[in-house]
Amino acid sequence: MAENKRGGSFYDAPQVAERYLGHRHSGVSSPNHVMEEPAFLEELGEVTGLRVLDLGCGDAAIGQVVLDAGCRSYLGLDGSAAMVEAGNSALYGTAGRVEMVDIEDFSAPPSSFDLIVSRLAFHYVEDIEPVLASCHECLSPGGRIIFTVVHPILTSHDPGVQGKRTSWVVDDYFLQGPRERQWMGGTVTWFHRTIEDYVALLTKSGFSLTSLSECAPREDRFNGDADELARRRRVPLFLLLAGMRA
């Protein structure tokens, strides 16, 4: 298992944050742009007047989106010093801010937030049950949680392939636990769970499941690149879940 057990520290390794942000914001070639982001924004809906918390916020890209859409406040938390710096730089001059806190250490008083989001961060957390319990506790009645993770098909197996893949292998799918892989020039640990595991953990924490999406590619985001669209239709890369606090 990788020496750094918490996800944020991975992004403070030399050049990792730079490589990751370059990849994530690379347009059509980024699966985030053509798959995860549109599914997330569709689920996000109306945020006017909401107090928003973003767990594992990275460079706080969604922060400016929700602030522009009229949310009351935005707080991003991340365990990476590089990401906290990038997030606060991006939010400079706005009502939003980013603080350095590991997801595992997060807690807040009851009814502190109306919406909690987390994009591609929970698969870095070994035990998300207490995290989801903390989310439930700090949300106002009727508050929502929306999170995305790397799809279990991908967390189940590391093919060790450089460049564009032509095949995907699923192995030890029903075995939960850490999976090391080579990614962004370093060794990272992702914690594998099945779709069923994620749903069970969400509902066990007191949330009503309101949405489940495998983030199919959106044709209008490919700028007419039919080959790339066909490639992204072959296998799911992301999983989105949303729930509501009673």
Rank of each mutant, 00 (worst) to 15 (best):
E129Y: 04
S112E: 09
S205A: 15
E18P: 02
H123A: 10
F40L: 15
R97A: 15
E42F: 00
Q15F: 14
E180I: 07
R72F: 11
L237V: 12
D225E: 07
F147D: 08
Y124L: 08
L202M: 09
G243S: 03
A2N: 10
G96V: 13
L21E: 10
F207H: 05
Y20Q: 02
V52W: 01
V34N: 08
A121C: 08
L229Y: 06
F113K: 00
D227L: 12
R6P: 09
S156N: 13
L115N: 05
V199L: 09
I128P: 13
R51N: 13
Q64C: 10
K5T: 14
V101F: 00
F207E: 12
R231G: 07
C135T: 13
Q176H: 08
A90I: 10
S30E: 03
P110D: 13
L240H: 02
F222N: 04
V66N: 01
L154A: 10
D105E: 14
A17V: 07
T203M: 09
D225H: 04
S29G: 11
S29D: 12
L55R: 01
E36N: 06
P236G: 09
A200L: 11
S26H: 02
A90F: 04
R233L: 15
D158N: 13
F113L: 01
H25L: 12
T48V: 06
L175V: 15
S112H: 04
G143L: 07
F238Q: 10
V131T: 13
N32V: 09
L120K: 03
S211Y: 00
L139K: 01
R231V: 12
D105K: 05
D220S: 11
S26P: 00
L239N: 08
Y198K: 06
H192N: 05
G206F: 12
L91I: 15
E42G: 08
G22N: 10
A60P: 05
L237R: 06
G79R: 01
F106P: 14
A242M: 03
E104V: 03
W190H: 11
P159A: 15
E104I: 01
I62V: 14
E18S: 13
T189V: 13
Y198D: 02
R24G: 01
